[in-house]
């Protein structure tokens, strides 16, 4: 049965492919913001009956941070540190897309085989979670700007968040909000660190960061 929910999840999957294939930092930031928005809508749409107040808090908190706050921070970071606004990947875009397709197949296989105590709201939810973890990891290891590392980390977090709302009955609100808070602090700190790295070393190329030794 195709519900709007399923369509939203497919859109979420497509944003991940777009992340793997896009070459501009600005479009990466926009896509991650779109993911935050989609996750917020999925949070509300995934509730069978009328959603309770905690669901709305969760959804609105998610949209406010991932769709408004983080993109603003990212844009500021990109503007301030004065870097080339392209991704410059170690692994090419086409190869990344191919890796994406393979990892999506793997996640479907894995998602069908893992037993969970309660059923997720959609068959696609759990495979998408694994897929987003893969994509986040792929973005972290195959792109060489410090900012794309944060984007990859955020994609992984989005995946974990989707996992959380798949089993929202079983997970307490405070755990979810706590995770969200952790992420906010993490992105803040990374924003500051990126700025400092740029001021100290004039580059955000992670390959050169490996040379930093005492």
């Amino acid at each position: 049965m195709l519900s709007w929910l399923e369509a939203l999840i497919i859109l979420l999957v497509l944003t991940n492919f777009a992340l793997l294939g896009s070459s501009r930092l600005a479009s990466l930031i926009r896509l991650v913001a779109l993911q935050g928005m989609l996750l917020g809508i999925i949070t509300i749409a995934s509730q069978p009956g009328a959603a309770s107040a905690r669901i709305y808090i969760l959804a609105l908190g998610n949209i406010a941070t991932k769709c408004l706050l983080f993109p603003w921070l990212f844009y500021r970071a990109v503007k301030e540190v004065n870097i080339r606004r392209e991704v410059e990947p170690y692994v090419g875009y086409n190869l990344s897309l191919l890796a994406g397709v393979i990892s999506f197949g793997l996640s479907l296989w894995l998602g069908d085989r893992l037993p969970f105590p309660t059923k997720a709201f959609s068959d696609l939810a759990v495979p998408t979670v694994f897929f987003m973890l893969w994509v986040g990891l792929l973005l972290i290891i195959s792109r060489n700007k410090a900012i794309t590392q944060v984007v990859g980390y955020l994609v992984m977090e989005n995946g974990i968040y989707l996992f959380g709302i798949s089993f929202v009955e079983a997970a307490p609100l405070f755990v979810e909000l706590g995770v969200l808070l952790d992420v906010i602090v993490g992105v803040f700190i990374m924003g500051i660190i990126i700025h400092q790295i740029d001021r100290q070393f004039d580059t955000l190329h992670v390959g050169q960061l490996a040379n930093l030794k005492d």
């Binding site: 999957v13 497509l14 492919f17 294939g21 875009y93 086409n94 897309l97 191919l98 994406g100 397709v101 999506f104």
Partner: peptide, 10 residues
């Protein structure tokens, strides 16, 4: 074109 193949594969 690779993007189109990705859509089909998906």
């Amino acid at each position: 074109l690779v993007g189109a193949s990705t859509l089909s594969a998906l």
